[in-house]
Computed example of a mutant assay.
Amino acid sequence: MEISVATSNLEEKPSPKPEARKRTSLSSAAIYERVKNMAATFELRPGERINEIDLSKQLDVSRTPLREVLNQLMVEGFLERTTNKGFVSRPLDVKQIFDLYEYRLSLETAIGRLACQRATDDEIVQLERSVQEDAAVPEDSDSNQLLALDEAFHMRLAHLTRNDEFVRALSNVNARIHYVRWIDMRNGRRPYTQAEHMQIVQALKARDEVALVKLLEGHIARRKEQITEVIKLGFSEIYTRQRG
């Protein structure tokens, strides 16, 4: 008699390995916007070395797209790169901010001249209505909201030139002085801003290029001592805020 021996049909399998940690599928554009915001608001503190490994973990992204973003932001002036430290956050100093305001002034006066020539009457009326709507926002509203309204006004003015390069350049400089303007807005700039916007629109409506440029100069220009004071307030906010 032949005796069959039953054998287990279960195959021996290796113990499961811990599943590799997956990175989120953030697009390069999303990574760019997140890191740009961190740089613009000095969540990356002035002069701070950027640890790419830690930042990739914080954002839950791989280092390759992150490195591409850091290089792009360096080219755009939001970060710097040194031989020994790698990428570092840009400084917050009077000279750099003054230079940016000076650049913004020359840029926006050129925008104003071109808008006088190219904006249609209907477009100017729409801009006037938007300023009237902005003026209805309470002065004690959140500073981020107030600054967003202010930046939007200047971007709408830039779009009236029908020149994409002006729009792109203004968007960049706005982002690079965003933090300083936010500090400025928190310290009582709002009432003057809205009144000056309406005066700018009225000059545009009258196609008075000379008056418009003069108004923009008064609206945008900042003396070095003013910038120095705002930067002092900015440093105080940066180093007393809680880091996430």
Results as ranks from 00 to 15, higher is better:
E2L: 08
I3A: 05
A6L: 11
S15T: 03
K17C: 01
E19F: 10
R21I: 00
R21W: 03
T24M: 11
L26G: 05
S27W: 10
S28N: 12
I31G: 06
E33V: 04
M38G: 08
T41I: 07
T41N: 13
L44D: 10
L44R: 04
L44C: 08
P46F: 15
G47I: 09
R49A: 14
I50R: 04
E52V: 15
I53A: 15
I53K: 13
D54Y: 09
D54W: 07
L55P: 05
S56F: 06
Q58W: 07
L59M: 10
L59Y: 13
P65L: 11
P65D: 13
L70R: 02
Q72D: 14
G77H: 12
F78L: 10
T83E: 15
N84G: 12
P91H: 15
L92I: 10
D93E: 15
V94C: 13
K95V: 08
F98W: 06
F98R: 09
Y103Q: 09
L107V: 07
Q117W: 04
A119D: 05
D121V: 10
D122R: 11
E123I: 04
Q126K: 11
L127Y: 02
E128Y: 11
S130I: 06
Q132C: 09
D134W: 13
A135W: 13
D140R: 13
N144M: 09
N144D: 13
N144I: 05
L146D: 09
L147C: 05
L149V: 08
H154R: 08
H154P: 01
M155K: 12
R156Y: 01
L157Y: 03
L157E: 00
A158V: 09
A158E: 04
H159D: 03
L160K: 00
N163F: 01
E165G: 00
R168F: 07
L170W: 03
L170G: 01
N172F: 06
N172T: 13
N172C: 07
N174P: 07
A175R: 12
R176D: 08
R176H: 08
R176N: 11
V180I: 14
R181F: 03
W182G: 01
W182D: 04
D184Y: 09
D184I: 00
D184A: 05
N187V: 04
R189N: 07
P191L: 06
T193V: 15
H197G: 05
Q199W: 02
I200K: 01
I200T: 08
A203E: 08
K205Y: 04
D208Y: 08
A211Y: 00
A211W: 00
V213F: 00
V213Q: 01
V213G: 00
V213L: 00
K214Q: 05
L215S: 06
H219W: 01
I220V: 14
R222Q: 10
R223W: 01
E225T: 03
E229C: 06
I231V: 02
K232S: 13
I238W: 04
I238N: 02
T240S: 15
R241K: 14
G244A: 11
